[in-house]
Design a protein around this nucleic acid. Structure first.
Length: 617
DNA sequence: AAGTAATGAAACC
DNA sequence: TGGTTTCCCTTACT
C-alpha cells in the first residue's frame, strides 16, 4: 500500500471525497458537445492508445478503454476561441482532454499543420530521432555485441515496470518546490528547497519524519548540492536572496559563503536591476570549490574550506540567468553552465584568469567577456533550463531547453556542433512552475536512462494527469511514464535515486516517492489502486501519507516551538490550523521590509479561459 | 463555483 | 537598450 503522509489538520480527510462523480460529469459534457451539432469529429490519436491504456490502469482505472469518442463543437456560433480570438470554435478541455486551437502551431513540437493531438512526436516520442551509434533497437544481442566490441560493460537498463507513488508528504513546503537533492550517505533522505527559501529534509522510508528549516533563505532556494560523502551533513544552497550558504542538514546551522547583496535591500536605491540572485550551483569535491551562477550571467567560485569567494567571472551574456552549473564527474577541470542567454557553455577551470577580483567590472563587448576559460558554446533557440554531463563517464551531455526539446550530445568533443539527438518533449512552461530539468539516472551504467516531468497532460481513464517520463536518451524512446491517480499536479522537479529504485518528485508544495511495482507486490498495489479509486483519488493509508500545512507563518512558528519542546524528530501530526495565512509575500521576500521588487502594479488582462476550463470535481 | 493573484520569457515598439 | 504587452493545458486560494 502506498504510504501517504498528511500532517495537516484532518489529514486524510482533506484530500478525500473529491471527484466521485467524475465520469458522469464527463459524459454530460461530451453528450452536450455531441448534441450541439458537431462539425469536427475528434481526431483520435490512434498511436498512443495502448500507451494510455496501460497507464490508465495505473491511474484511475475507471472504464478506461471504452472512453467514447470525444467531440468538440466547432459549429457553435457563439463560441470565441480564447487562443486565437476567432469565432466558431474554442480551444480547451473537454473533460480531461485538451483540444488545441486549430489555427495555432502544434503546442508540442511548435510546427504548423497539425495539433498536439495528432503530433507525430506525441504519437511516437522518438519520431525523427537518430539513434546513438551502436544501439540497435535495444536488443540484448546488440548490447552483448556492443560490449564485446568496446570492452565496456553495457547494461540493458530498460524500465518496464509500472511505478506508483509509494510515499508522499503533502504540503511539506509553504510554496512550490524548486529543487531536490539526495543525501550522499543516508539512502532514505532527500532534501528539498522551495520558492520561499525553506529547506526541508524528508525521510521517504519513515515518511512521517521530516525537518523544515524555515528561514534558510528569504527568497527562492534555486539549487541545493551536498558537499560530498566526506562532509555528508553539509549542503550548499543558492538562492534568489543573493546568498550561497553551506548548512548542516541536521541542525540547520548555516554559514554564508557568498552574499551578492551585502548592503541588503535599500528602499529607493536597490531595484530589480541591481539585485543579484544566485541560481545554478555545483560543488567540486576534488578542488573544494563551490561554484554558483547568478542572475546577471556571472559565475562565482568560492573555496569550500574557507567559505570565501575566490573569483567571479562574466561567463554568460550580461543580465541573463545562469540556471545550472555542473562540474564534470570524472574530470574536475571541466564545467558546464546552462543559461537564459540561450546557450550552454563548457569551460576549463584551469584557464581561470589569475587576477580576478571580487570587484571586477569588465565592460564592453556583447556581454560575455571572460572568454579565457570557455571551450565551447552550445547554442539553443531558447532558454536552457539545465545542462548536465552524464553522471558516470561524464562524456555525454544533455540539455533541457524551453523550446520543448531535450538535446543529447553523445561525446563532449561533438559539443561544438549540432546535438546527436533532439527529443521533442513537453516541458516548455515558463511561469507559475519551477522550470523543468531533465535528469540522468545515475544508476544506469549505459547512461541512457533519463527522467523528466511532462507539462502537457494526457487522458488517463478520465483524469488529466501529467506523467513523469522515463526516457532513453540514446533513442528518444519513452520507456515508462509515471502516473498516479493521487498525483494530479505537474511534476517539474524529479530526481532518480543514485542507488535505489526510487524517484522523488517535487510537485507544487509536496514531495512524492515513486517505486516500481514489484511482481510480488502487484496485488497489493492493485488494492491500493482500487482503494484510491474508491475514495476518489484520496489517501489510501495514513502510514504512507502525510500532509503538512506549512503555509501559515504563525502556525509554522508554533509548530517549531512545539517541535523544539519535544526536542526530537518531528513526529507526524502537530495539527496545523487550516492554512489561511495568505502569506502576503512580495515576489522576493517573505517577511519584513516591504519594498521588494513588486509587480503588483501589473495590469491584469482577463485570460478568458472559462469555456475551455478543465472540469475538476 | 467562478474569479484572481502570483509569475517569467519573449515579442514588440 | 527599456518599457509594455502577451501567452499556451498552473495552482491555490477566496
Amino acid at each position: 500500500m502506498p504510504r501517504w503522509v498528511d500532517t495537516r489538520e484532518g489529514g486524510e480527510e482533506e484530500v478525500d471525497d473529491e471527484s466521485t462523480s467524475e465520469e458522469e460529469d464527463d459524459e454530460e459534457i461530451e453528450d452536450q458537445a455531441v448534441e450541439e451539432d458537431v462539425d469536427v469529429e475528434e481526431e483520435d490519436g490512434e498511436g498512443n492508445v495502448d500507451q494510455n491504456d496501460r497507464a490508465a490502469s495505473n491511474a484511475q482505472a475507471g472504464p478506461s478503454g471504452q472512453r467514447g469518442k470525444i467531440s468538440i463543437s466547432l459549429g457553435k456560433k457563439g463560441l470565441v476561441c480564447h487562443v486565437c480570438g476567432k469565432k466558431g470554435h474554442c480551444a480547451g478541455f473537454v473533460g480531461s482532454v485538451y483540444h488545441d486551437c486549430p489555427f495555432k502551431p502544434c503546442y508540442l513540437c511548435k510546427q504548423a499543420g497539425h495539433t498536439t493531438m495528432t503530433c507525430p512526436f506525441r504519437i511516437a516520442p522518438e519520431h525523427g530521432c537518430r539513434q546513438a551509434t551502436g544501439i540497435c533497437s535495444d536488443g540484448m544481442l546488440a548490447c552483448v555485441r556492443q560490449r564485446e566490441l568496446s570492452g565496456r560493460r553495457q547494461d540493458l537498463h530498460i524500465e518496464q515496470n509500472d511505478w506508483l507513488v509509494d510515499a508522499a508528504v503533502l504540503k511539506l513546503h509553504s510554496r512550490r518546490c524548486t529543487c531536490l537533492e539526495f543525501h550522499p550517505t543516508k539512502d532514505n533522505i532527500v532534501v528539498s528547497g522551495d520558492k520561499k527559501g525553506q529547506v526541508a529534509i524528508w525521510d521517504f522510508e519513515k515518511v512521517h519524519e521530516r525537518t523544515v528549516h524555515g528561514n534558510m533563505h528569504r527568497a527562492l532556494t534555486n539549487n541545493l548540492r551536498f558537499l560530498g560523502p566526506l562532509h555528508d551533513m553539509q549542503c550548499a544552497s543558492a538562492s534568489s536572496d543573493g546568498l550561497c550558504k553551506v548548512f548542516d542538514v541536521e541542525t540547520g546551522f548555516d554559514t554564508v559563503v557568498l552574499n551578492m547583496n551585502p548592503d541588503g535591500w535599500i528602499p529607493g536605491v536597490t531595484n530589480e536591476r541591481t539585485w543579484i540572485m544566485l541560481y545554478g550551483l555545483d560543488v567540486c569535491t576534488e578542488r573544494q570549490l563551490i561554484i554558483a551562477g547568478d542572475s546577471k550571467g556571472k559565475v562565482y567560485f568560492a573555496d569550500a574550506r574557507t567559505n570565501k569567494e575566490i573569483a567571479q567571472l562574466q561567463l554568460h551574456k550580461k543580465g541573463n540567468k545562469v540556471n545550472t552549473v555542473h562540474v564534470n564527474p570524472v574530470n574536475c577541470n571541466l564545467m558546464m553552465t546552462g543559461s537564459n542567454d540561450w546557450t550552454a557553455r563548457i569551460f576549463d577551470i584551469r584557464n581561470m584568469p589569475s587576477s580576478v577580483g571580487s570587484s571586477s567590472s569588465h565592460a564592453s563587448g556583447n556581454g560575455s567577456e571572460d572568454k579565457a576559460m570557455e571551450l565551447t558554446c552550445l547554442d539553443h533557440p531558447k532558454v536552457v533550463n539545465a545542462a548536465y554531463f552524464s553522471p558516470r563517464s561524464g562524456s555525454k551531455i544533455m540539455t533541457t531547453c524551453i523550446d520543448n526539446r531535450l538535446r543529447i550530445w553523445d561525446y563532449i568533443l561533438s559539443a561544438g556542433g549540432p546535438p546527436d539527438r533532439e527529443i521533442v518533449h513537453s516541458h516548455d512552461f515558463n511561469r507559475y512552475l519551477t522550470p523543468f530539468r531533465a535528469e540522468w539516472d545515475p544508476k544506469d551504467t549505459a547512461e541512457r536512462t533519463i527522467v523528466v516531468g511532462r507539462y502537457i497532460s494526457e487522458d488517463f481513464g478520465g483524469a488529466a494527469l501529467h506523467p513523469v517520463d522515463i526516457m532513453d536518451a540514446s533513442t528518444g524512446r519513452l520507456l515508462t511514464q509515471l502516473v498516479d491517480a493521487n498525483l494530479a499536479t505537474i511534476c517539474p522537479v524529479n530526481k532518480p535515486h543514485p542507488r535505489m529504485d526510487v524517484i522523488i518528485s517535487g510537485s507544487s508544495r509536496s514531495l512524492y516517492a515513486w517505486r516500481p511495482v514489484s511482481e510480488g507486490n502487484e496485488d497489493e498495489a492493485e488494492r491500493a489502486r482500487v482503494a484510491a479509486e474508491k475514495k476518489g483519488g484520496a489517501a489510501p493509508s495514513s502510514d504512507h501519507f502525510v500532509s503538512y500545512d506549512a503555509d501559515d507563518a504563525a502556525t509554522e512558528k508554533k509548530k517549531r516551538k512545539a517541535a523544539s519542546a519535544a526536542a526530537g524528530n518531528l513526529k507526524d501530526g502537530s495539527p496545523a490550523g487550516k492554512g489561511k495565512g495568505k502569506g502576503k509575500a512580495g515576489p522576493l521576500f517573505a517577511e519584513d521590509d516591504d519594498t521588494p521588487p513588486s509587480k503588483a502594479n501589473w495590469k491584469k488582462k482577463k485570460d478568458d479561459n472559462t469555456e475551455g476550463k478543465r472540469k475538476k470535481k
